[in-house]
């Protein structure tokens, strides 16, 4: 019986990257613990570290898992296996998205639950936290696409710099949207149209970036 090569490649990525996932989970958990300390400084520092943990895992996963595979000449070894390039792309996209989602879902769910249960941060902030937490996911999708399609470290670094410098700006503009921030300090989350449109826009952008990556990869003719 022939094994599934795509599944084998996904499991291989999990074995290679799990230490990094565990590190990001520990970092994010520490940041959330700091927020629970209460007081302005721990909340601000813990909040920043929380997003930094999400950004770090989102940026390093594609750089280490995709670019390194090409740079360190593992790709020729993988492509000698019974797999087509589009199957390799599928495995890479699935593995990276799943590996990113493990810390992202865990940390974001934990953050939302702690806000709901402990109330150190007002529950009205939940939509804003979710919107801000999706930004590293958008960045991850852009960097993943850049390194898979661009095939060079240069493209990865360019996407990395672009995302890193854009987060601050996007945060600035998001926090200036009245419909979003008006309820941020409220006792319960308000899912108004502004919040929902922004969340839907982020999800659409993630889907578009990953879909476009898959499409562009499927049109390539030379792989190594």
């Amino acid at each position: 019986m022939r094994g599934s090569v795509v599944r084998g490649l996904i499991l291989k990525d999990w074995r290679l990257q799990r230490a990094q996932i565990i590190c990001s989970l520990c970092g994010g958990a520490f940041a959330l613990a700091l927020v629970q300390w209460g007081g302005e400084t721990p909340i601000v520092v813990g909040g920043v570290w929380f997003f930094v943990a999400l950004i770090l895992v989102g940026h390093t996963l594609p750089l280490l898992g995709i670019i390194n595979e090409r740079k360190k000449q593992h790709l020729a070894f993988l492509m000698s296996l019974p797999v087509s390039y589009i199957q390799y792309t599928t495995a890479k996209l699935v593995a990276n998205v799943v590996l990113f989602l493990i810390p992202w879902l865990t940390l974001v769910s934990a953050a939302v639950m702690l806000i709901e249960i402990r109330g150190v941060v007002p529950p009205g902030a939940i939509p804003v936290v979710l919107i801000l937490a999706l930004l590293p996911f958008v960045g991850f999708s852009l960097i993943t696409g850049a390194v898979l399609v661009g095939e060079t470290e240069g493209w990865g670094l360019a996407a990395n710099v672009f995302c890193s410098s854009t987060y601050g700006l996007v945060w600035y503009f998001l926090t200036r949207i009245p419909g979003l921030m008006a309820h941020a300090t409220g006792p319960s989350p308000v899912w108004n149209s502004t919040a929902l449109i922004i969340l839907a826009g982020e999800c659409a952008l993630i889907t578009l970036l990953l879909g476009l990556t898959y499409f562009l990869q499927s049109r390539k003719r030379d792989f190594v």
């Binding site: 360190k72 000449q73 020729a76």
Partner: peptide
């Protein structure tokens, strides 16, 4: 292939 490499950390 001469330019093929295995995973060094494994």
């Amino acid at each position: 292939s001469e330019d093929m490499r295995l995973y060094e950390s494994m």
